[in-house]
Design a protein around this nucleic acid. Structure first.
Length: 130
DNA sequence: ATAATGACATGTT
DNA sequence: TAACATGCCATTA
């Protein structure tokens, strides 16, 4: 298992109940802004215990396709159970439920200052919305 | 070694 | 708003 995958797992485990994040967001926290697909790959093949269902794509859609229909429906069910309402098209308002890592946690990630700034600029705890 | 394939993201149309 | 195109990068073939 690569260090990247280990980070993915660590971070996914910190996502609180009832919240959701995107693949790209996790990738960013891991210091690999372009590795969203690898996050998905990790969640799929890693059998360790983690709340994988709290990770969706950036438009708030469950993006499991093809022959993983069972998992797709399971994810919808699990999210619904945590209070996130999901429509028949497997989409929901991610901004309403998006989890933002606290700034002090971001600073513990051992990333370059440049990347930290990038993270805070994109996912700030006090965004425009409220 | 080269090319195709994804639980993705983002900018253009 | 939604479809399309391009960029990404580890894994597979």
């Amino acid at each position: 298992m690569s260090p990247f995958q280990q980070k993915v797992i660590e971070i996914v485990r910190t996502i609180p109940y009832g919240k959701a994040t995107s693949y790209g967001q996790i990738a960013l926290y891991c210091g690999m802004p372009r590795a969203a697909r690898e996050v998905g790959w990790t969640l799929r093949q890693s059998k360790v215990d983690m709340p994988w269902w709290r990770v969706v794509n950036n438009s708030g859609r469950i993006s499991i396709d093809g022959n993983m229909e069972a998992d797709k429906n399971l994810q919808k069910k699990l999210l619904s159970a945590e209070g996130i309402e999901i429509g028949d098209d497997f989409t929901f308002d991610i901004e309403k439920y998006r989890w933002i890592m606290p700034e002090e946690e971001v600073k513990k990630l051992q990333l370059s200052e440049e990347q930290i700034n990038k993270i805070l600029a994109k996912y700030s705890q006090t965004p425009l919305n409220f």
